[in-house]
């Protein structure tokens, strides 16, 4: 942050003698690649979304412009509204409640234990984050298996299929387990910055744990809470991995937006319709992103 502030104050100091020309040459290749493979496809989504493009058949060879048809279809389609509602539930349950609460609890409690314990616990939580989602999905499928899964053995509910009976709960718990590490690390760093002397003072003044948290800890970590909430909400919103657990089923009961796009565009072949929904998702993302970047810039200046 300090270096940031210095360089912001004197934007034109060219400390290393890099020069504009060479600096531009340094940045351009990366910009071009990102432009070609991230920004350009996003723009093409805009075009695809107003066509009746299909994966196979006549509309694949000669797609027609259908205007806003796909968008009106989407907004009146109960399936789309279902997916949107499920996505919001997924974000609320697994990111905002699950990961944030669990991540904070771990970060908070690990201040109290010896350093070795803290390191071990943090590594194990990180383990869940490092593993490929395909593997985490497999572990959960085995764990929730109706016949010989561990959960049914523990609860004595052999024969119950969790992925069919409680699909949303399953993917919410799955995503909480997998993603908690990020919140934990972030809050762990944030809590290091809370001056213990202030906590001490609050305690001496007779403040209980909740009051200490509200009046001393929270004001210090507010920025981190915000950053964390926005980032994990975005990731969860765009996360495709629920597909690996339930594929959106049974009967669309866990079909979040990315899974819905996949199912309608690549499974049913309605590329135009899928693109329109992609663009709606993109707009929701942009809204959150603009909000986030503005906050970030405010914090820096």
């Amino acid at each position: 942050m300090a270096a940031q502030a210095t360089s912001a104050a004197a934007p034109e100091t060219d400390a290393a003698g890099l020069g504009k020309a060479r600096a531009t040459a340094f940045v351009t290749p990366a910009l071009l690649l990102v432009g070609a493979f991230l920004v350009f496809p996003a723009l093409w989504t805009l075009y695809l979304g107003i066509t009746d493009y299909r994966l196979t058949g006549i509309a694949a060879a000669d797609p027609q412009i259908v205007g806003l048809q796909n968008y009106t279809d989407a907004l009146t389609d109960p399936q789309f509204r279902n997916a949107l509602a499920l996505t919001l539930l997924f974000v609320l349950g697994s990111a905002i409640v699950g990961q944030t609460v669990l991540g904070f609890s771990i970060a908070w409690s690990m201040r109290a234990v010896p350093k070795t314990v803290k390191t071990v616990v943090e590594s194990l939580v990180l383990l869940a984050w490092i593993l490929p989602s395909s593997i985490v999905a497999f572990l959960w499928i085995a764990y929730l298996n109706r016949d010989n899964g561990t959960l049914n053995s523990v609860l004595g509910t052999s024969g119950f299929d969790w992925l069919l009976g409680h699909p949303m709960l399953s993917i919410i718990v799955f995503n909480t387990w997998r993603g908690t590490a990020f919140s934990m690390l972030l809050f762990s760093a944030a809590l290091n910055a809370v001056p213990p002397s202030q906590l001490e003072t609050a305690r001496l003044a007779g403040a209980d744990t909740f009051a200490q948290f509200r009046d001393v800890v929270f004001p210090h970590i507010r920025g981190h809470v915000l950053t964390n909430t926005l980032l994990i909400s975005l990731w969860t919103f765009n996360d495709f991995s629920p597909y690996l657990l339930t594929a959106g089923g049974p009967n669309h009961a866990s079909e979040t937006l990315p899974v819905y796009i996949y199912n309608s565009a690549l499974y049913s072949g309605e590329l135009g319709y899928g693109s329109a929904i992609s663009l709606i998702m993109l707009l929701i993302n942009l809204l959150i992103a603009v909000f986030y970047l503005r906050l970030l810039k405010d914090r820096r200046s």
């Binding site: 493979f37 495709f240 993109l282």
Partner: peptide, 15 residues
């Protein structure tokens, strides 16, 4: 660009 949903880029990239 971190905020572009990968699934939205998938369809044009596929084509």
């Amino acid at each position: 660009t971190k905020f572009l949903p990968a699934i939205a880029a998938l369809l044009p990239i596929y084509l």
